[in-house]
């Protein structure tokens, strides 16, 4: 790692001020950023830790919405969102490994927007609202391609609001080495329709599979997806699977998510 200054503010306001410096970068749980820094792929002059900000932590149910602080760890979401939004809690409880879940945060994951991360599928698949220190961003506007989001420099995800669906589930097949999703699909059924979000598969990062959404909105059953395929043109092809394989898996995982939805 290149060296950097480290600050750990106690409030969002302090953090925003600290991030106003050029080359300052926010540090969530660090489970992606620290390995990146070790490879010297980033060189911030200052890291602003968000782990000391109490107001950014916690899970609460507000009406038909689950609100999760941006600094909440995957483990906490897995434990505390389980009754209100079991599909989301299940997803959080399967990110990385237990030690990673004890540090990694939802805000960190969404800000990074790794094309193989789990949380983007939940956020997009739920039509969540990404709340920052300065505004609210709809998930449909937030994800803008791999490692690219609507966040401005220095903008912090303070909370994420997930509308609670009637049913939901997350189906994942792991990449054999990293154990990140090779392909994973989050399905959520709402009163006004079904959302299907796919991660791990596309060169453009997480995306909604609109044909599947249409089919499932009419008939929320796995066989409603029979015959539906996604094009492999934009799928990732690498050591772990061809684009055609990933395209195939999108259908398989979507069906499995529907079948498992509760």
């Amino acid at each position: 790692m290149y060296n950097f200054d480290f600050v750990k503010p106690a409030t969002v306001d302090e953090a925003v001020k600290a991030l106003a410096d050029d080359e300052a970068q926010a540090l969530g749980g660090g489970q992606t950023l620290i390995p990146t820094l070790k490879q010297r792929l980033a060189s911030p002059s200052k890291l602003v830790s968000l782990t000391g900000i109490a107001e950014m932590k916690g899970v609460s149910k507000q009406g038909d919405t689950v609100v999760i602080g941006g600094g909440t760890t995957h483990r906490t979401v897995a434990e505390e969102a389980a009754s209100a939004y079991p599909g989301l809690a299940d997803l959080a409880g399967r990110i990385g490994d237990p030690a990673v879940r004890n540090r990694g945060t939802i805000g960190g994951s969404l800000a990074n927007n790794d094309p193989s991360a789990c949380y983007p599928a939940a956020a997009l698949g739920s039509g969540a609202t990404i709340v920052t220190n300065s505004r609210e961003i709809a998930a449909d506007d937030y994800f803008q391609g791999m490692f690219t989001t609507a966040l401005e420099e220095g903008e912090i995800i303070t909370e994420v609001r997930f509308p609670i669906p009637k049913k939901s589930a997350y189906a994942k097949i792991a990449q054999p080495a990293s154990r990140f999703p090779l392909v994973a699909v989050f399905v959520a059924q709402y009163a006004d329709g079904v959302r299907v979000a796919v991660t791990g598969a596309s060169n453009n990062g997480v995306f909604r599979w609109s044909e599947a959404e249409a089919a499932l909105s009419g008939n929320f059953a796995a066989d409603a997806l029979d015959g539906l395929t996604v094009a492999s043109d934009d799928m990732i092809g690498d050591l772990h699977g061809t684009a055609a394989y990933r395209a195939h898996l999108v259908g398989v995982m979507a069906k499995r998510a529907v079948a498992a939805a509760s």
């Binding site: 480290f6 489970q31 620290i34 237990p98 030690a99 540090r103």
Partner: peptide, 11 residues
């Protein structure tokens, strides 16, 4: 449990 190689000492 945390991975001490993926956490800054100052944290």
């Amino acid at each position: 449990a945390v991975k001490s190689c993926t956490m800054l000492a100052l944290e």
